[in-house]
Simulated scan of single mutants.
Amino acid sequence: MSRNDLPAPGAMRCAFAWCTTPHGLTVHPADEDHRSAGIALALRARDARAGGPGETTEWEVGLLRRSGDDETWMVIEAGRALSLALPVDAARALGKVLRDDPDLRAWLAVDGSDR
C-alpha cells in the first residue's frame, strides 16, 4: 500500500470499498454521502422527445448512497440539469438486457461497424 492509498489523518474508513468520501473530514452533513470516484465521458445525447442531432455533453457515471438511503444507486448525470439514478438492481437489469438481447447486442457491438 502506498502513502497515497492511506486515508487522510482524521478520516474514517468506509464500509463500501467503492466509496471515495473522506468521512469525518467533510464540511457539510450532505458531503458525508457515499460516492464512487465516477467515470467521466463525453456523449452526444438529446431528450428522447426531441429531434435534431443532439448535443455533446460531459456525463459522469458512478455510485451514490445518500445517508438516508437504504440502497445504492447508479447515477448518470450531466451537471444539475440532467440526471438519472437507478437502484443497483435496475442498473444490473439494464446491463443484462443490453448484453443478452441479440438485436441490442449487435447494434451496440464495439467493433467500429455501423449496422
Rank of each mutant, 00 (worst) to 15 (best):
1 M>W: 03
2 S>Q: 09
2 S>P: 02
3 R>L: 13
4 N>E: 11
4 N>A: 15
5 D>W: 01
6 L>F: 02
6 L>D: 08
7 P>C: 06
7 P>M: 05
8 A>D: 07
8 A>M: 09
8 A>P: 00
8 A>H: 10
9 P>M: 04
10 G>L: 05
10 G>V: 04
11 A>S: 13
11 A>T: 01
12 M>L: 15
12 M>I: 02
12 M>V: 08
13 R>F: 02
13 R>L: 14
13 R>S: 13
14 C>F: 01
15 A>H: 10
17 A>M: 04
18 W>S: 07
19 C>Y: 06
20 T>P: 05
20 T>H: 07
21 T>Q: 03
22 P>I: 01
22 P>T: 01
25 L>W: 04
26 T>F: 03
26 T>K: 14
29 P>E: 09
30 A>C: 02
30 A>E: 14
30 A>R: 14
30 A>S: 12
31 D>H: 13
32 E>Q: 12
32 E>H: 08
32 E>F: 08
32 E>K: 09
33 D>H: 13
33 D>V: 00
33 D>A: 15
33 D>G: 12
36 S>Y: 04
36 S>Q: 04
37 A>P: 04
38 G>V: 01
38 G>Y: 00
38 G>M: 02
38 G>K: 01
39 I>M: 13
39 I>L: 15
41 L>H: 05
41 L>S: 09
43 L>S: 06
43 L>D: 06
46 R>I: 05
47 D>Y: 09
49 R>M: 04
50 A>D: 15
51 G>Q: 03
51 G>F: 07
53 P>E: 06
53 P>D: 07
53 P>M: 07
54 G>N: 10
55 E>T: 12
55 E>A: 14
57 T>G: 02
57 T>S: 06
57 T>K: 13
57 T>A: 07
58 E>Q: 13
58 E>C: 00
58 E>V: 07
58 E>W: 02
59 W>S: 07
59 W>H: 10
59 W>N: 10
60 E>S: 12
61 V>R: 00
62 G>T: 10
62 G>Q: 09
62 G>E: 11
62 G>W: 03
63 L>S: 00
65 R>C: 11
65 R>N: 11
65 R>I: 01
66 R>M: 08
66 R>H: 11
66 R>G: 13
67 S>L: 14
67 S>W: 06
68 G>C: 04
70 D>S: 14
70 D>K: 04
71 E>T: 06
72 T>D: 11
73 W>Q: 01
74 M>P: 02
75 V>K: 04
76 I>F: 14
76 I>Y: 02
77 E>I: 00
77 E>R: 15
78 A>N: 06
78 A>Y: 01
78 A>G: 14
79 G>L: 05
80 R>E: 10
82 L>W: 15
83 S>N: 06
83 S>G: 11
85 A>L: 01
85 A>P: 00
87 P>E: 00
88 V>H: 07
89 D>G: 07
89 D>N: 09
89 D>R: 12
92 R>P: 00
93 A>D: 11
94 L>Y: 07
94 L>G: 05
95 G>I: 07
95 G>V: 10
97 V>L: 15
97 V>M: 13
100 D>S: 13
100 D>E: 15
101 D>W: 01
102 P>R: 08
103 D>M: 08
103 D>R: 09
104 L>G: 05
105 R>C: 14
105 R>G: 12
106 A>F: 09
106 A>G: 05
108 L>Y: 11
108 L>V: 03
108 L>Q: 03
108 L>M: 12
109 A>C: 09
109 A>F: 09
110 V>T: 12
111 D>W: 08
114 D>P: 00
115 R>L: 12
